[in-house]
Each structure stands twice: as structure tokens, then as C-alpha cells.
Amino acid sequence: MDRCGATVFVFGKRSVYLPVNEAEMVPHCQEEFEAETCVKNYARKCLAPFPRQIIGILLQGASQVIHSRCKPEGVKDYLSHKNCIATTISDLHDCMDQLVLGLNAIAKAPADDRIPMACCAFGRYQHCSIQPIKNKCTDDPKAVEYIGIKMIKGIKNCFT
């Protein structure tokens, strides 16, 4: 599950390979689709209802991101921002690590606190991720929109 989840969510997987051309996107997308199926199967077969719901929320946004990115127009869009992604990837990994810690804490929280804690964790994740993009990708004016909104906010599509 951890390997599949890291592949689906990209950020947080230190060994991630970032495609640099259309040909490299083909195996990248195939790996992402397989990982998505792996996570869905694991959640359905192995998780209790609440964790399964959290995975479902996360996976819904991530699935939309993957399927959009792997269409011809999405490939072009992704590749136009590859330099910014490469420049900020270390920061984005660190932000994902913080999100994972926040989500792990939810399991120990009282049931009434879990949803608000999840929302706060995702809000912190989005803020953490957007800052390095704003600061380090000044030559890519649409990077915040693509990486911060399409890739990162797409992971959890209910924060505004």
C-alpha cells in the first residue's frame, strides 16, 4: 500500500522519476494507473470504514489529476512546468511528509475531531506546497495554478 500510495501521490516519494518528454510520460502514466488500482484494491479489501473514506477522498482528487495529466493536452501542460516541479520537488516532498504526520495523528483523535483535523492538515499541506512554488518559480507564472491547484489541490478537491 505504501509503495502504491507514494506512486499515486508523487510528492513524498523521494525516488520519483520526473518525466522530461512525451515518450517518458507513457511508462510514467502506466505506473500511476497501476498504483491507483493497487490503492483502490487495498482500501476496499483491507481498511476499516473511516480510513477507507479518507483514502477515497484522497484518491478521487489524485485520480482526476493522473487521468488529466496523462491525456495529450495534460502531458503538454505537465511538461511545460517540469522545470518548476524539479526545482521545488524537495520542498514538496517535505510538505507531503508533514501531511502524512498530520493524517497519522487523526487516527488517535476523538471521532468528532477527525474531520476538522483532516481539513486543517490538508490546508497546511496546500499552503506549505504553494510557498516554494511562488518563491522559486518566478519564471513560470502559471506554475502555482498548475502545480498548486491542478496537482496539489486536486489531491483533495474539497478545500477552497
Rank of each mutant, 00 (worst) to 15 (best):
M1S: 10
D2R: 00
G5T: 03
V8T: 02
V10D: 01
G12C: 05
G12I: 04
K13Q: 15
R14G: 05
V16Y: 06
L18Q: 04
N21M: 06
N21E: 03
E22H: 07
E22C: 05
A23H: 05
E24S: 11
V26G: 09
V26K: 07
V26A: 15
C29V: 10
Q30E: 12
E31Y: 03
E31L: 09
E32R: 00
E34T: 12
A35C: 12
A35M: 07
E36V: 12
V39H: 02
V39E: 09
V39P: 01
N41H: 03
N41C: 07
N41R: 06
Y42Q: 09
A43N: 14
A43T: 11
K45T: 09
K45H: 12
L47P: 03
L47K: 00
L47T: 01
A48G: 11
A48E: 14
P49Y: 06
P49Q: 02
F50V: 06
P51N: 04
I54H: 03
I55H: 01
I55G: 07
I57E: 09
L58A: 13
L59Q: 14
Q60T: 12
A62C: 13
A62Y: 07
A62P: 13
A62R: 06
S63H: 12
H67A: 08
H67M: 14
S68P: 07
C70F: 09
P72C: 04
G74C: 10
V75H: 07
V75P: 10
V75G: 07
K76W: 06
K76L: 11
K76Q: 13
D77S: 13
D77V: 01
D77T: 07
L79V: 05
L79E: 03
S80R: 11
S80M: 11
H81L: 00
K82Y: 07
N83E: 10
C84W: 02
I85D: 00
I85R: 00
I85A: 02
A86G: 15
T87P: 08
S90A: 12
D91N: 06
D94C: 05
M96Y: 01
D97M: 04
Q98R: 15
L99W: 00
L99R: 07
V100E: 04
V100L: 14
G102H: 01
G102A: 00
L103E: 10
K108F: 13
K108M: 15
A109C: 05
A109D: 06
P110H: 00
D112F: 14
D113A: 14
I115A: 10
P116T: 02
P116W: 04
A118C: 10
C119T: 02
C120I: 05
C120N: 11
A121K: 00
F122C: 06
F122A: 03
R124M: 13
R124S: 09
Q126F: 14
H127A: 15
C128W: 05
S129I: 00
S129V: 02
Q131S: 09
P132G: 11
P132E: 12
I133L: 03
I133M: 01
N135W: 00
K136P: 02
C137G: 13
C137D: 05
T138I: 14
T138F: 10
D139V: 02
D139K: 09
D139L: 02
D140M: 04
K142S: 15
A143R: 02
V144I: 12
V144Q: 01
E145G: 04
E145N: 00
G148E: 01
K150R: 11
M151I: 11
M151C: 11
K153E: 13
K156A: 09
N157I: 13
F159D: 10
T160N: 12
